[in-house]
Computed example of a mutant assay.
Amino acid sequence: MRFRPLPTLFPGSHSFEVGGIAQRYHVHGSGPVCVAHPGGPGINWAYLRTPALEEHLTMVYVEPIGTGASGRLPSHPHGYTRERYSRFLELLINNLGVCRVHLLGHAHGALIAAHHAVHRPERLAGVVLYEGAPATGHGYADGTGHESEQAVAGRTAGPVLAASEAVPCVSSLDEDLTPDTIDDRASLRGLTVPAMVILGRNDVSSGSEWGREVAEVIPGARLLVLKDGGHSAHVDETASFTRAIRDFVQDVPAVRTAGRTVVATGRSAHSPTARRARG
């Protein structure tokens, strides 16, 4: 029997408002729901679109507040902290109307996904931290890899970025201009959501050692190293990237106690709530 998807998950673009701020997202594919948060902050979502994943999963691509057709905070271009992104992410997930989703975050989006998984794990079936880090500073590019993500956008077959959207237009400072300091090394040790870490061995933007450290501190995390991948591993090694995430979604009950590293060589082992998201 085939089930008709919920209206919130019909293919195409959707939006809803929270406290007068629009949150836009884009749905492609079919299967278990995976919400994907792009990097930046301030990068157009389209560079992260992966049609190969859409053959296995219902991909929900977040268009973060402060970018594209999503709304702006009154404090724009400031105030776009991980906590505020996570609040909007929570509302988006609730709005979808499904029990649990998988969450994929890339680069700065991985920092947001990690924060969300630690502080709001209730609706998550699993989390994929793609080119993330346990902290910022000390050699990891905070902000994170704008140039790299723009380059990816130019190499993908997806929508071409408008010139006005190719350049980051938001900061990661809070409304009072204080930095959004990130150090998740302690909190990630208590993560209860099944986790997978993906990194490209040749990533010169984030540095693969940071992804390895993320995997080391998360109990039972699965680590995938894409030996020919860089910061844009979903483009560099699409087949291995797709297979790994597909398998993770299928295997997620076993991932809690199945911490391991896989080096990919072309084959892979193995009703909305109306709370304000501002403030």
Rank of each mutant, 00 (worst) to 15 (best):
Y47D: 12
R24K: 11
S232R: 04
L96P: 11
R212A: 08
D174V: 01
S240Q: 00
D228Q: 08
E63S: 10
P64I: 08
P41F: 10
V128M: 12
K227E: 14
R82M: 09
L104E: 15
V214N: 02
Y47M: 04
G12M: 04
H270W: 08
H78M: 05
G207C: 00
A258M: 02
L53S: 07
S15Q: 09
E63I: 12
C169Q: 14
E149Q: 13
F3P: 12
L103T: 13
Q250G: 00
A153L: 12
E213L: 07
G139V: 14
P77W: 14
V235A: 06
E54M: 08
P38F: 07
V252D: 00
G39W: 12
A195C: 13
L224H: 01
R267N: 04
D180N: 11
S13L: 12
D203T: 02
H28D: 15
A254M: 11
V35H: 01
S205M: 07
H28S: 14
T192R: 12
E90V: 11
P77I: 10
T242C: 06
G42N: 12
P272G: 07
G139A: 12
S15D: 09
D203W: 02
L57Q: 10
D176K: 08
A69Y: 02
V262I: 12
L223H: 09
Y61V: 12
S75A: 03
A46T: 15
R185Y: 03
H14P: 04
Q23G: 00
L129I: 11
L48W: 12
A162R: 14
L103M: 08
H56S: 13
A133S: 10
G31Q: 15
P179Y: 01
M1H: 15
L173I: 05
G132Q: 04
T58H: 10
L177P: 00
L129H: 05
E237L: 00
V262A: 03
C34L: 14
R201M: 06
F241D: 04
S187T: 09
F3R: 15
S148M: 02
R87D: 09
G145Y: 15
G68P: 02
I218F: 14
P41E: 08
L9Q: 15
L104K: 09
P51C: 08
S15C: 15
G39P: 09
A135Y: 15
T156E: 07
G20Y: 11
V101L: 14
L191M: 04
A151G: 02
